[in-house]
Design a protein around this nucleic acid. Structure first.
Lengths: 149, 149
DNA sequence: TATTGTTATACTCTATAACTATA
DNA sequence: TATAGTTATAGAGTATAACAATA
């Protein structure tokens, strides 16, 4: 276990999520809820299944999550007018304001992570390496260092 | 969520663990069990709490884990002869042979991860970046690229 | 028949409090 | 009293099967 990529990934992720948790405690927002609001905000009207798939969440487990956001008045389900089985997801006005606050807190979190990594260059490198693990590496965006071999 | 370090870390970790799971299915071994056996093998005689702490596991949750390894005849608890409250942990003979098999499978897993990352150089860079997140960055071992700023 | 959202359920991981036996 | 191991338990997160409404 000289390198232990998986183990270090796990520990690092837990640390980042812990900082996330502390940062977003005032808003009582979990990482997954943050991600859902971000996705709805970026492209309103998507179906539940679409949002869930993008986050790697089973649609069955998405229900309670969405219930929570709806009960807090941040997002809402609307009956699809073409396919009446589906729900299209939207932010409420309150939700849009909330995303504003959220984004400001996010920048604080992100700044801390970049500092911990030793600069934006290292952050970008980490993201690229993680994309490689995820099989998402885009050759065009590789740095010189990553391309070298 | 332009960069989303935490989210990517989590997704990447799940993928690596999935490969781990498939690789070690023949041995019916989980990542945590692998880590425990590795730590006992590297330094036999450590207490349960010591092993648990190194892995970030609560000692309460370590009990069932250790029970499992003991029931499989891979490791054993021995009453501490100085402090009779504690258990010192050791591999059995069967456990030592098992660690041998385990290590060979580990190399297959590691090789696949390195290939996915695009070479050992990238693997090393990822490890260093994760160490930075973990606050374990050792300035002496930084690559030129990481040092640059 | 297939799909969307839903419910119920189970399994793993994790976290905490309280117990026991030692110190 | 404090600590090591243990037990019980509760809370997340995740996985599957089955159902109702709709296609």
């Amino acid at each position: 276990m000289a390198t232990a990529i998986g183990h270090k990934l796990r520990r690092a992720q837990l640390l980042v999520f812990q900082d996330f948790h502390e940062t977003f405690a005032p808003l009582k927002l979990r990482p997954t809820e943050f991600a859902v609001l971000t996705l709805i905000s970026a492209d309103p009207g998507q179906k539940q299944t679409e949002i869930a798939e993008q986050l790697g969440i089973k649609r069955a487990n998405f229900v309670a999550l969405m219930d929570c956001l709806e009960n807090r008045g941040l997002a809402e389900r609307r009956k699809g007018d073409i396919d009446r089985r589906s729900h299209s997801l939207h932010l409420t006005e309150k939700g849009k304001a909330f995303v504003g606050q959220m984004t400001r807190l996010w920048q604080q979190h992100e700044t801390r992570m970049v500092k911990q990594l030793g600069g934006e260059e290292n952050r970008d490198m980490l993201i690229q390496l993680l994309d490689r693990v995820l099989g998402m590496c885009d050759a065009a965006t590789q740095t010189r260092h990553l391309e070298r071999r």
